[in-house]
Design a protein around this nucleic acid. Structure first.
Lengths: 212, 212
DNA sequence: GTCTATACTTCGATAGAC
DNA sequence: GTCTATCGAAGTATAGAC
């Protein structure tokens, strides 16, 4: 008596198409664009069909959240196995589409009770993973002696995550005051850790002023 | 022919009541709560009356943005005239209601063309003010020699603003991983600048671990 | 599995009486 | 200056035919 409506099976192809559309919408239009009508329209499907595969919009969003999070964890593990994990983590957090997604999701978490738990639980767990990794990597390397940061893996991760997200979201608005200078500080720190500089990506200014 | 509707005068008392309600709603419910009906309801007034005083919702939001920004500038100048401007600036950026407001406003800027310009223009200008002030204050004080940050007022401000906002918005969701450690780094830096510690405010853990 | 049709709510906004 | 009444669009969601 609690499931009066027919629902599509778990492994359907259509489910993926709706999630794809939802993800694209969230990236391009933000949380306000994530409506049943717009998701269906973007997927080229009928709005009512969405409700055959997902009981509510919250269900669809929850599925999207899980997919985004799984991909993020997968990228994290790839980075940990790569030659320059610290730079890789910085790149992961600075990745525009990922950062926009994280930002919109945590914005949604404030408004939608149903998905807050999932988003917060993952964010907490993923933050802990990054802290554990960075703390270990810092302990293995030299370059931070005397800077007061030796024991501060958790603080460094927190600051880096906050900075990366702010730079991405502000850049999207055309606000760039202080970005290049903050990036220069990050680059200087990564340099001190003795890692090589990867090929710079498309957007965002890189002003590598000589570190003091 | 472009103003077919009657409008209330500029200095009306009712205008302020609507703005008050809008501000409270934006703080408590976020951008999704900022609708004509909810603003009017919160103000204890009729929805249609709102449209007598404001031509569109964008007009009302714009008025709110201007008021919030003016208050922020006023607080900035008070802080500059206070004994501990660096700590004062950190407190300003860490202030929960102010940070939530800034965060919701920049979130709105992504979606509403009409107010983006106003929000971005102010954010850019306010960032520049903070950078100018911090750069000057750092030059006047000792404590950063050898840390590589001497010339990086702009970078420091960017990082501090990003961190403060992240801590506030994450705390509101119950996400606190890495907060106390990041705050310890900030405290250590402020300590190095030789300023005294103000009385700690209500929320947020302060783990003042001994600076390295 | 997909369609048409539709219910109900809330949104921004307007017209015109008082 | 404030009220009642209302519009059209868009929101989530459901029922039932095909």
């Amino acid at each position: 008596m609690t499931q009066p409506r027919r629902m599509g099976v778990e492994g359907s192809l259509m489910r993926g198409r709706f999630i794809d559309a939802a993800e694209a919408l969230l990236r391009d239009e933000g949380l306000l664009g994530l409506t049943a009508r717009q998701v269906a329209s973007r997927a080229g499907l009928k709005t009512q069909l969405l409700y055959y595969y997902y009981r509510t919009m919250d269900d669809l969003i929850l599925a999207l959240v899980r997919r985004v999070n799984e991909r993020r964890v997968a990228r994290f593990h790839e980075i940990m196995a790569s030659p320059n994990p610290l730079r890789g983590l910085w790149a992961l957090n600075s990745d525009p589409s990922g950062a926009v997604m994280s930002s919109e999701l945590s914005s949604m978490a404030s408004h939608r009770e149903a998905i807050r738990t999932e988003i917060v639980r993952f964010a907490q767990q993923f933050r802990a993973m990054q802290i554990e990794a960075v703390t270990r990597l810092l302990a293995e390397r030299q370059g931070f002696e005397g800077s007061g940061f030796e024991k501060s893996g958790a603080g460094i991760v927190m600051i880096a995550v906050a900075l990366a997200r702010a730079i991405v979201t502000e850049s999207a608005l055309g606000l760039t005051e202080g970005h290049s200078e903050a990036l220069a500080i990050v680059e200087a720190m990564l340099d001190r850790l003795g890692e090589t500089v990867p090929a710079p990506s498309e957007s965002d200014a890189r002003v590598l002023s000589e570190p003091g």
